[in-house]
Design a protein around this nucleic acid. Structure first.
Lengths: 205, 205
DNA sequence: TAACCCCTAGTGGTCTGACCACTTATAATC
DNA sequence: GATTATAAGTGGTCAGACCACTAGGGGTTA
């Protein structure tokens, strides 16, 4: 393992794991080599490998099962967010930037999705609004998950999901009740220009 | 340390560190107890303490200095996003989504910055355009770094910087030469509505 | 044949002790 | 008083040991 001088061992391990995942095209749920194998193949100690794995586990990238092995995580663990929140909370400028950025992404995603929304999506949007009328938080998540998926921009989706988890700790995380139906209306009319206005009303309400 | 049955040791350590920080009212930059002290006071091994600390370090909550000790992080670095992105981008994201997202952020940042641009910033923008007329790539970076800083949104800045690095691999990464001057003109006129149009012309050119 | 049980190999979880590299403060020296 | 050498404290790393847990093989039994 060619390593830069001031690099900590577990950083090297992190990088090697990333490369391993990439080269072997590992998907969520796939198994990683055992800690002992990794240590040997990287020419490092098992404890250094574990430090890297523990960090990745806390980030929700991998999950470990005692006696079984280490696996690429198939879902984003909320435990990460809880821990982060308890440490981070209190920095108001950070909170502000998280909320702003989340809303920004939702607005732009809504615009990007416009061209790709089909009739069956409209139906789906309406169904989400109806079914979750009494659970605005979940409605928001389902609603925008669909929008983000329609953008076909995986990076944007991932960033949004991550920020959403953070923001939910200190923000109600959803808009006024009529907002969602109004957005669907704009989708039906394919009215791009008024999407921005609709969001702006929410941001400053 | 009274521990729940299925709890991993380093989770307990995490919790204890959190409590320690709160009880002692530690602020960014303050020193934490040494690894050996923590291990002894928590009745656990040093390796378990280290696993917890490494995870916190990766999350940007603490920083360690060899030979000195462990300190509460003095700035909020969104390490999480960096790590996650480097893992995720390696796998699945397409060039398309990276470029789209970068441009999206630049457009929205330009709009967010509008309200905060002062006369001296206008001067600075013009200076960047003049000085780097022969280095469009660097001009773009300096130009938008200033914009992103004006948004006072640290999260957006970090995300942008990260995406920029990746996108430069396969995208020229800058707009048409007149674009920048035109944007400055809009800042001088404080013309919010036409910023979007200006960007759209770039995106589809 | 089918169901059951036990044992074992492999894996993560944890601890200990050792040594190194680095920083800081102290003490000795000039 | 300034400089230098030393020691103590700290994080960085490794090796080895043992435990707890899981899955699978192989034998036993009905």
């Amino acid at each position: 393992m060619s390593m830069l001088p001031n690099q900590k061992a577990y950083h090297g391990v992190l990088e090697q794991i990333r490369i391993f995942i990439h080269e072997n095209q590992l998907k969520p749920g796939d198994k990683l080599p055992s800690e002992r194998e990794l240590a040997e193949s990287l020419g490092t100690g098992r404890s250094s490998v574990r430090e890297a794995l523990r960090a990745l586990e806390l980030l929700g990238i991998i999950e470990t099962r005692h006696g079984e092995g280490t696996f690429l995580s198939s879902y984003r663990s909320f435990q990460t967010v809880k821990i982060l929140a308890s440490f981070i909370l209190g920095n108001s400028s950070t909170k502000e930037s998280i909320i702003t950025t989340r809303k920004l992404i939702e607005k732009e995603a809504a615009k990007l999705a416009l061209q790709k929304v089909e009739d069956k999506d409209i139906t789906q949007f309406k169904k989400i609004i109806q079914d979750l009328i009494n659970n605005p938080k979940q409605m928001h998540i389902d609603f925008f998950t669909l929008i983000l998926n329609k953008t076909e921009n995986e990076l944007l989706l991932i960033i949004w999901q991550l920020i959403l988890e953070f923001s939910q700790i200190f923000d109600k995380g959803f808009y006024d009740s009529p907002f969602y139906q109004q957005l669907v209306d704009l989708y039906e009319k394919e009215d791009y220009s008024r999407i921005e206005d609709l969001f702006m009303k929410q941001f400053f309400s």
